[in-house]
C-alpha cells in the first residue's frame, strides 16, 4: 500500500508560535505548545472515513469560529476600548475554534474506535 501523508500532522507546526513566546519571555504564548498533539496524525492513514470525520470536525470548528466572534465582539467592544476589543475578540474566537475542533475530532475518533470492534 502506498504511504500517504496525513496533512493534519502539519497543524503541529503552529507549536512554533510558542517558540516566539520562549524567545521573547511571553508566557502567554506557551499554550501553542498544545499543537504538538497533532504530530501523532503523521502516523494515521488518511483514508476516506478519516477524511470524512476530519471534515465534520473542521466544519463544526469553522461554524463555531463564525458564531462565537459575534458575542465576543459585542462583549469586548462594550468592555474594552475599540483598539483592544477587536484583537481580544479574535483571540477568544480562535481559542473557541481550536477547542471545538479538537473536542469534535476526539469524540469522532472515540465513536470510530467504538464501532470498530475486532472480529
Amino acid at each position: 500500500m502506498k504511504h500517504r501523508i496525513n496533512y493534519l500532522g502539519f497543524l503541529s507546526l503552529l507549536a512554533l508560535i510558542a517558540v516566539l513566546g520562549w524567545t521573547t519571555d511571553n508566557n502567554g504564548l506557551y499554550g501553542f505548545f498544545g499543537f504538538v498533539y497533532y504530530i501523532r496524525y503523521f502516523r494515521v492513514i488518511p483514508d476516506e472515513f478519516f477524511r470524512l470525520n476530519l471534515q465534520k470536525a473542521a466544519t463544526f470548528a469553522f461554524m463555531a469560529e463564525m458564531i462565537s466572534l459575534v458575542p465576543f465582539m459585542f462583549f469586548c467592544t462594550y468592555r474594552y476600548t475599540s483598539a483592544k476589543a477587536v484583537p481580544m475578540a479574535f483571540g477568544l474566537s480562535f481559542a473557541v475554534t481550536i477547542f471545538a475542533f479538537t473536542i469534535a475530532l476526539i469524540v469522532l475518533e472515540w465513536r470510530e474506535r467504538k464501532g470498530a470492534a475486532y472480529d
Binding site: L11, L54, Q55, K56, A58, T59, F62, E65, T97, F101
Partner: peptide
Amino acid sequence: NKSAARGFFCGM
C-alpha cells in the same frame, strides 16, 4: 462541509 473545512485549514 468541504468549503467550511477548506476555510478552517486555510485560516489556520
